Computed example of a mutant assay.
Amino acid sequence: MPKAPLPHPRHEDTLPLPTVSEEAARARDAALIAPLPSAEPEEDEERGGEPDAVLPQAPQSRPGRQDSRTARNNVIRPGDLICGSCGQGNAPARRFCARCGFELREAQVARTPWWRRLLRRRRGPRVVELGTGSGLQDDPAPAPGGRLAAFWVRLKAVLGIVFCLSAMLYVSYAPFRSMVNDRASEVRRTATGFIESQYSPVRPAKVTGPSAKARGTENLIDLNTASYWSVPYTAKDAQGKGKTVLIVEFDRLVNLNQLIVTPGAGDEFTQHGRPRQMILTFTNEKQSRVELQDSAEPQKFSLNDGLATRKVTIEFTDVYPSAKGEDVAVAELEFFSLLS
């Protein structure tokens, strides 16, 4: 029995397949494949990673840097830290400048001017008893001793101004300068007289040594500068000691603190040699070297080693020569002890 024929499909139930060319299919398949890395990096690694040479280019202008710092404040209060970069005053607690950010570790501290410190009124802590006062701050009570401190500050300011004016007047006005110099000399003489009055003269019992006729050693202690002692002067001997030696003796132990020497022969000062250097040896074997000036005025010398002594040996080691002869002359020797 023959088979019945299949029903023919309807047109609206099936869709025709699109027709694609072979080249389009290959292009579609190639787009779905991931691209392989290029071989250029491998070539760069083989060359050692050196970049290609680049020709010099023209410099490019950079945009100007905008200053973000705050405005500078020229009012610097005492105690502020002055920035070493921009000069800005900063609070003492800051570590970096508020204007430029510079570190303030070594910043200079602003100080109060000297004239303001001088005129500043110093006040102590305010003390108010409980239960007293109106509670108003208009009339604060002065601290204990505040009045005296304020008076002392003002007094120092006045004295400083007077001193400055006096110094200017001393430099510019000759009569005022002469008056000040005279007063200073008078005060100096008064002080010198007071100091000298504290010394007591010590009279030697005798003086022995070489002497010439009518120019004996007694003239050294007669308190008369018109008379003098004079002998020929000889240089040192082979042992290095001077041959012209005086021995001054006292009748008791004394403390010698000062010596006054009047060199020369009074009115005949230039006709005789004058002592230039003397060495004093005391009983305690201590020595003092005396250097004299070529002057007829009395010359004072301090004796630091003449304590508890009874005899003083005076050795003339050098003299100022005269034109008429080789001798040495001394008008007076005076010893003093400091009063206790």
Rank of each mutant, 00 (worst) to 15 (best):
I161Y: 08
E22N: 01
P201S: 06
T309L: 02
E103H: 14
A226Y: 06
I314F: 06
G89Y: 05
S302W: 04
M1Y: 05
F316A: 04
I33S: 05
P41T: 05
V290Y: 09
S185D: 07
V330T: 09
Q287N: 09
A205L: 10
Y320F: 15
S85H: 13
G101Q: 07
W114P: 00
G49D: 14
G48K: 07
E285D: 14
E12H: 07
V261N: 04
V162A: 15
D138A: 13
V153Q: 07
R289W: 06
G87T: 12
P5Q: 14
A27M: 04
V330P: 00
S38K: 08
G306N: 10
L256R: 10
E326V: 10
D52I: 03
P204Y: 03
P92A: 12
G133W: 04
M179F: 14
E196Y: 02
T132E: 14
H11G: 04
E43K: 15
L136M: 13
M278Y: 01
G124F: 04
L253D: 05
D29N: 03
I33N: 02
W152L: 09
F301C: 03
R147M: 10
P321K: 05
G133F: 10
V171I: 09
T281I: 04
T190F: 10
Q88L: 08
D44F: 06
Q299F: 07
D294N: 15
T132V: 11
N255E: 06
R147H: 14
R120K: 14
P321S: 03
G87S: 12
L55N: 05
L259W: 04
E12S: 02
R126E: 14
I33V: 14
I33Q: 09
L292P: 03
V158I: 11
W152C: 00
L81R: 15
E45S: 07
